[in-house]
Design a protein around this nucleic acid. Sequence first.
RNA 1: GCCGGGGUGGCGGAAUUGGCAGACGCGGCGGAUUCAAAAUCCGCAGUCCUUCAGUGGGCGUGUGGGUUCAAGUCCCACCCCCGGCACCA
Length: 879
Amino acid sequence: MEDERKFPDYEAKWQKFWDARKKATSQSTEPKSDREFYVLSMFPYPSGKLHFGHALPYTLTDAMARYLRMRGYNVLNPTGWDAFGLPAENAAIENKIHPSKFTYDNIDAMRKQKHAFGYSFDWDREVFTCRPDYYKWTQWIFLQMLEKGVAYRKKARVNWCTQCHTVLANEQVETVVKDGDEFQACFRCESRVIPKEIDAWFLRITAYADRLLDGLDKLGDQWPERVATQQRYWIGRSEGVNIDFTANLAKPQKLTVFTTRADTVFGVTYVALAPEHPLVEQIIAQSDARQAARLREFVKETLGMSEQDRAGEAEKEGVNTGFKAVNPLSGEEVPIFVANYVLMYGTGAVMAVPAHDERDHEFASDYRLPVKQVIQQPGGTEVDVKQAAFTGHGKLVNSGRYDGQTTEQAIRQIAADLKAAGKGGPQVNYKLRDWGISRQRYWGCPIPVVHCTACGIVPVPEAELPVTLPGDVDFLPTGQSPLTLHPDFQRTKCPKCGREDARRDMDTMDTFVDSSWYYLRYTDPQNAERIFDRAKAHHWAPVDLYIGGREHAILHLIYARFYTRFLHDIGLIDFEEPFQRLYAHGLIQGESIRVVNEHMNRYVSQEEFARLKKEGKAKDSDITRRIEKMSKSKKNGADPTELMNQYGADATRLAILFLGPGDADSVWDPNGMKGPYGFLRRWYDTVLQYAPLVEDLPELPAGTAYSQAAKALRAGAHGLIDKVSREFEGRYAFNTAIAAGMALLNDIHTYMRGFANPLTADLPSRHALREAFDAMVQTLSPFVPHTAEELNQALGNEGSVFDRPWPKADPAAMKLDEIELPVQVNGKVRGTIRLPAEADKATMEKLALDNDNVKKFVDGKTIQKLIVVPGRIINVVAK
RNA sequence: GCCGGGGUGGCGGAAUUGGCAGACGCGGCGGAUUCAAAAUCCGCAGUCCUUCAGUGGGCGUGUGGGUUCAAGUCCCACCCCCGGCACCA
């Protein structure tokens, strides 16, 4: 064991070699041609350690980049750090490390890991979102948005921790049960979280809703369908009709409802308001004391719930206000309710049609409200709307002059009539809401505005950017945003009127803002004058292939698409879609084992379980195995860096790719290293053993004949080139490309066994072997670059394998003289025939029918049909 | 509930245009090597039946139907698993 050679021992050597000859990527200002290719993997948050969630996309990206360079493309493959964010700030609070130090230490560690994997990133273009030279431009874009009215300020409801005095994201609110009381609590201090209205900055993404939607159609199959549909759903365009009811308060008031089913308007039996609806205040004011108290209590209780709770399984509840609303079409008077199931979506008020809406039906049943059928099922089948709502389309009944119309006709007609009468009309709504970007946090991009007691909100002048995050802040574990405790940062002069008592905005931006435009900065990362040079950006952008996780299907990807459109609109770029093709890689999960018995009740690792079993402390029936996302607490993780230290970078890269197709979720098997590692070793040993046979071969005279075995091997070699090339040209199922490489190595072994003494092999046979070795080295080099370099050298080739052009499969070499063809009788394979590849149909038929076993099955029957698919199959139909 | 993706040997997965299902790898079994083991190399392997053997056959891609000379692949109905969304009127 001790003296066994370390394999591989050449990886660091080749990394140094690559570093030494690495040229900076082109700074060209030529417009992008079809020779430029921008491949990008989502940049990581510097958590401190490279994990499987990184290793898969980077390996995919690196393989693509290396392949494309060999194909002669100018490739841009940058990386950087999404470096602002909460974990750094929490580390600061908990461990008293400055977020900046925490972040940069992590970056240094992760950069080393990325390098050790042999990834060929353009390190000279590294960007850091937390550096002033980057966030200066994040702030600059914000100011452009402010000027264009895309950024604006409004009151918003947020989750507010009563102890930490800060805003929490929805994911940071948990449900806690204490003394039998269940409530929403802060994830850090477990104190109560309440909804609170605060002033915050918003970006008007809703103004881009239709363009974002249209863009998805144009991307077509370049984006995974599931991501596109998720975005469509998130945007949630809904076409309907606004209908103005009249609320009979002290003074009649307009009460507008939004509906997608205007055809059911004659079935309205009540109107329901969201508790936030502005009319609710007036109603309370005009109610008697008891009723007002009831309403107030109800509103308070409903709004006190987090949005999740309210949207969850909560019972539908409401309060009859005692006021009535008049239906503009039927003239009927119906009661007005305030109800917890009505959201502030659309107008915040709905016309309730219990006969044709499930939610209204449920509420009406509980509150004994009338149910009035106005839609008849097509075909005239009776439906009992008392039992359940009928939500399908149909023909109108009980609807005055609209009786007999179809749902579609009636919606159109009613919308038109309402519009003509000035009582509403067609309306489009979106689920998408404007993007609130204010965060009461320290470790983020400062918002470049000043609040002046005289001038109000004043943008920081462009010349004064960036507004720098102060470094000297206290990180007392109070949970308070440190910027609020930093008087020097806050206090400033008003840029407009010069007043001394102005103060800076103390919030920072959501980190999704930082990552919404980073792909453009890579095209000109050091530009100190401008956000980027227009021409340089157009040399590379947009991104041709974007590789990242599905967890970003909505937020990041929709924000980046929005930002790109905004930058387009202000004339910075001339395209609207940032990412031409999106490749959503799968999640690598691990198998967890949980032991529950008299000794323990906890997660254990695979190794620990094996040990416990040996010691008799656990048995198979005590455990639950589950496939779960890798995590420390579940002890089902695998650390790619540990694997790399043990087996080398190439074997780890290979194992990751060999796990399955990159876009499918897969489960990490601790034995998954063995195959790929063994393959690399065998390959290496084989090349070194036979390299002397194939070095410095003289040219093969034209027309030299190969032996049958040599021909078969050549067919395999060219087949591999063809196979791998096709995977790179679109499908990216590299697991099958690697399998093909393994298969060729097996073929080489079979081939070599065919020689009694390989040293006497003739020249053509040696050439065939050489071709197979070269094909393997070249086609597998994008996956295992170090080993490919080493073996390329061992074969006597000069320089780097990556300087050799990508090989081209020779179709003639892929063809065999003689092929095997299966013969079916009535659809079942009954024999195989060998025949010359170019045999004609008649020969094929004859050989097929001459086959003994085929004869046996055809015997006594009449041949009705003979189907010959050249090169594939022969099927004899006999009855 | 809605949307999306899946279901193939003991396991991960392959089958690219409807044409020999199970490539490649793991694990397993047998053999060589070894004092022995590890490592390595060679071979076997969907399953059931058949044959002394070579062999030959039945059944097989979640279930049930269909189209076709031929279906993992296409169509209809259903079951299960994973992911996302979920009172959006």
